Computed example of a mutant assay.
Amino acid sequence: MSESVYRKTPLPVRLDLNKRNTREQLSQGTDDQRGVLQGAGVACPTTESQKDCNEVMRKDLEQWLVDHGISGPPPSPEVEQRAMWQWIRDFHKEYSDDWYTRNMPRLRDQFRPIFVQQMKRMREQEAKAHPVEPAAGDLLDLGPYTPQQAPPAPAPGGSVDLLDM
């Protein structure tokens, strides 16, 4: 005999439609494993989709940086912002300027974290490749600590001048 045509669903078997509160019926007696294939893991489709989208954006950003000859982090935050918006616009080149302008807040929320991660990675790589030495005459650089000798003791019985200390 062949398998049953019936497929389990996440809904309970029966709902009493005479009762107005179906939420209560749904919360009671539902089996969490209904509708799940045996041996298959449960994955949230939106999480998987978001991971895939992030990967597409990351790969496109890497290719965009190569195409535009950008091998290091931008020299200033303004240049970095311009580069980010140019990349986002190039990514959505099939849409009109009107669509792009209307969707800028949403696009910024989605694309900015990917761009910031890449810039952070590029800064770390540059810092490893070119460690920054403190500049000569840097007022904040106190140099290595070397204990100094104590000032000479004043002559006994003589007057103490504060400038001699």
Rank of each mutant, 00 (worst) to 15 (best):
T9I: 01
T9S: 07
P10W: 03
P10L: 00
L11Q: 15
P12Y: 07
P12L: 13
V13S: 14
V13L: 11
R14K: 14
L15C: 06
L15P: 01
L15Q: 04
L17H: 07
N18W: 10
N18T: 11
K19T: 07
R20C: 08
R20H: 13
N21S: 15
N21K: 15
N21Q: 09
E24D: 14
E24T: 12
S27V: 11
Q28H: 10
Q28I: 13
Q28S: 15
T30P: 09
D31S: 08
D32L: 15
D32H: 10
Q33K: 12
R34L: 10
V36M: 13
V36N: 13
A40L: 08
G41M: 08
A43D: 07
C44I: 06
C44R: 08
P45F: 04
T47E: 05
T47D: 04
T47Q: 05
T47G: 01
E48F: 04
Q50K: 11
Q50T: 10
Q50C: 02
K51H: 03
K51Y: 01
D52I: 15
N54D: 15
E55D: 07
M57P: 00
M57I: 08
M57D: 06
M57R: 13
R58M: 02
K59T: 08
K59G: 07
D60T: 10
D60C: 06
D60P: 03
E62N: 11
Q63E: 10
W64N: 00
W64V: 00
W64M: 00
D67Y: 01
D67W: 02
G69R: 10
I70T: 04
I70D: 00
S71F: 02
P73A: 15
P73H: 08
P74Q: 10
Q81V: 08
Q81A: 15
Q81C: 13
A83Q: 03
A83L: 05
A83P: 00
A83E: 00
Q86F: 01
I88T: 07
I88C: 05
R89D: 03
R89K: 12
D90A: 08
D90K: 02
F91K: 08
F91V: 02
H92M: 05
H92P: 00
H92E: 09
K93N: 06
K93H: 07
E94W: 00
S96K: 11
S96W: 08
D97Y: 11
D98R: 13
D98G: 12
W99Y: 13
W99G: 05
Y100W: 13
R106M: 14
R106Q: 13
L107H: 09
L107I: 14
R108Q: 11
D109A: 09
D109V: 06
D109T: 07
Q110C: 02
Q110N: 04
F111R: 02
F111V: 05
R112Q: 14
P113S: 03
F115Y: 12
F115V: 04
F115K: 00
Q117H: 08
Q117G: 11
Q118P: 03
M119F: 02
M119T: 04
M122C: 03
R123F: 03
R123L: 07
E124G: 02
E124W: 00
Q125V: 06
Q125P: 01
Q125W: 06
A127S: 11
A127R: 14
A129D: 12
A129F: 14
H130K: 15
A135W: 05
A135N: 09
A136G: 06
A136S: 10
A136N: 06
A136Q: 09
D141P: 07
D141V: 10
L142E: 04
L142T: 04
L142W: 03
P144T: 01
P144D: 05
